[in-house]
């Protein structure tokens, strides 16, 4: 086979058409020079593009690392005007808000995706897919407005009972982030489920296994790694979201959840906590960064370092664990 002896395209290019083969091309040197120049220019562009990574990470470590200590993690913010204090409440707040968003958003996204790949008709699927793509392009601050309109600006009344009193709250922040999570999780999960070969569905069907068990215990289980990766990357994304929290969770310099009653009071205290404004790392960074106090600027850097460690470790870890190209492509922001 003569084709087998041809070197691959890249190998050809490295030798760049030897002069013997094209003896009469007197512009060869110029063309080769132009090629080198193009490589140089595009390399320069690539360096410019990745420079901010070095700068941002470098300055975060330079300015934030010295303020990172246990007290910073475990203390409440100091009263305004005093120096010191920490971001304990913001750490917990970020965790709580993300947890609420995940509890609401992840099931909707995953089971919705299961419907698309396992049950849905072509037309319904394309409508939902387009809808999810539109929602993925909606600026995150708009979700803040929606959650504000639902839970901050109005009481929620069901059958004549007021089940929710209006006001800035933990729940509103979580709901705003859930809205961002839903279309993201739906689309990534769908793409992963589509990768599950049909043969597995057929084999399971032929064993007389019920459809819902096939969906959950064969299809979703086969795709589990991809689904988890997609969900975690989506969560890493909302972990850094600030805009939707500005007028939903609002921020809080104290604990939103306070437990000092008897154990029977716990549910009530929980409910009360959900109805309180709550701190979150991104909010804290924002308000400290635009404040006039040097000590708050210092804390903003430290908090930013905490946040970036959280977000990047999730990203790096997951990308390392699943070197599956499709998953990576899909979950890029």
């Amino acid at each position: 086979m003569p084709a087998a002896t041809l070197p691959p395209a890249n190998a050809v290019s490295r030798e760049t058409s030897s002069p013997a083969a094209v003896p009469r091309d007197n512009r060869h040197g110029w063309r080769k020079g132009k090629s080198t120049l193009a490589s140089g220019v595009s390399l320069a562009c690539a360096l410019i593009v990745i420079t901010p990574l070095g700068f941002v990470l470098g300055y975060l470590i330079l300015k934030g690392a010295s303020s990172l200590n246990l007290a910073f993690f475990f203390n409440l913010p100091a009263p305004v005007g005093e120096t010191g204090g920490g971001v304990a409440n913001a750490n917990v707040g970020t965790f709580v808000v993300i947890a609420i968003a995940s509890v609401i958003g992840v099931p909707v996204g995953i089971f919705g995706a299961i419907y698309l790949t396992e049950y849905g008709g072509r037309r319904f699927n394309s409508v939902v897919r387009l809808g999810a793509d539109i929602l993925n392009g909606v600026p995150s601050i708009v979700w803040g407005i929606v959650a504000y309109a639902l839970l901050v600006n109005h009481d929620v009344v069901l059958f004549g009972h007021t089940i929710w009193h209006k006001g800035f709250s933990t729940l509103a922040g979580g709901v705003a982030l859930a809205f961002i999570l839903i279309p993201m999780v739906l689309r990534t999960t769908e793409e992963v489920l589509l990768l599950v070969p049909n043969g597995y569905r057929e084999a399971a069907t032929a064993l007389g296994i019920n459809r819902w068990r096939i969906c959950v215990q064969i299809v979703a289980k086969t795709a589990l790694k991809g689904i988890v990766t997609g969900v975690m990357l989506a969560v890493a994304r909302i972990a850094g979201e600030t805009a939707p929290l500005l007028f939903t969770a609002l921020g809080n310099r104290f604990w939103s959840f306070q437990f000092h009653g008897p154990i029977t009071a716990l549910p009530g205290e929980f409910a009360q906590g959900f109805a309180q404004p709550i701190a979150a790392l991104p909010l804290q960074i924002f308000s400290y960064a635009i404040s006039p106090y040097d000590d708050w600027h210092r804390q903003a850097w430290a908090a930013a370092l905490v946040l970036i460690l959280l977000v990047l470790s999730l990203n790096v870890g997951l990308r390392y664990l699943t070197r599956d190209r499709v998953v990576r492509v899909m979950t890029k922001p």
Binding site: I50, L53, Y59, L60, A289, A300, L307, P333
Partner: peptide, 16 residues
């Protein structure tokens, strides 16, 4: 590295 750039939250870019 480019993927990492896209993972950095907006508020951190703002701070920087």
């Amino acid at each position: 590295m480019i993927e990492m750039l896209s993972a950095i939250p907006s508020v951190i870019y703002g701070l920087w």
